[in-house]
């Protein structure tokens, strides 16, 4: 599973890096940075929850 974030859509709600800190972390602005674009299996559920938690729908998931 791969995840990516659209930097034009992210405005720093910060839900993703709270829900899935092993996949997403804040940058200096508080916006999302993907730290594991190839998501290890153990974090897949959390990554999906994080994508669903984004009010801007800025996170994409592909298999």
């Amino acid at each position: 599973m791969r995840v990516s974030v659209d930097p034009d859509e992210c405005v720093g709600h910060g839900r993703c890096y709270v829900v899935a800190p092993d996949v997403f972390q804040p940058d200096v602005l508080g916006h999302c940075v993907v730290i594991r674009p190839e998501v290890p299996e153990e974090f897949e559920t959390a990554a999906r929850q994080a994508a669903a938690a984004c009010p801007e729908e800025a996170i994409s998931i592909s298999s």
Binding site: V11, R15, V19, Q49, A52, A53, C54, P55, E56
Partner: peptide, 13 residues
């Protein structure tokens, strides 16, 4: 609750 996409802080830019 998950997901919780609340917009208590607003949304957009």
């Amino acid at each position: 609750r998950e997901p919780n996409r609340h917009i208590a802080f607003g949304a957009g830019p």
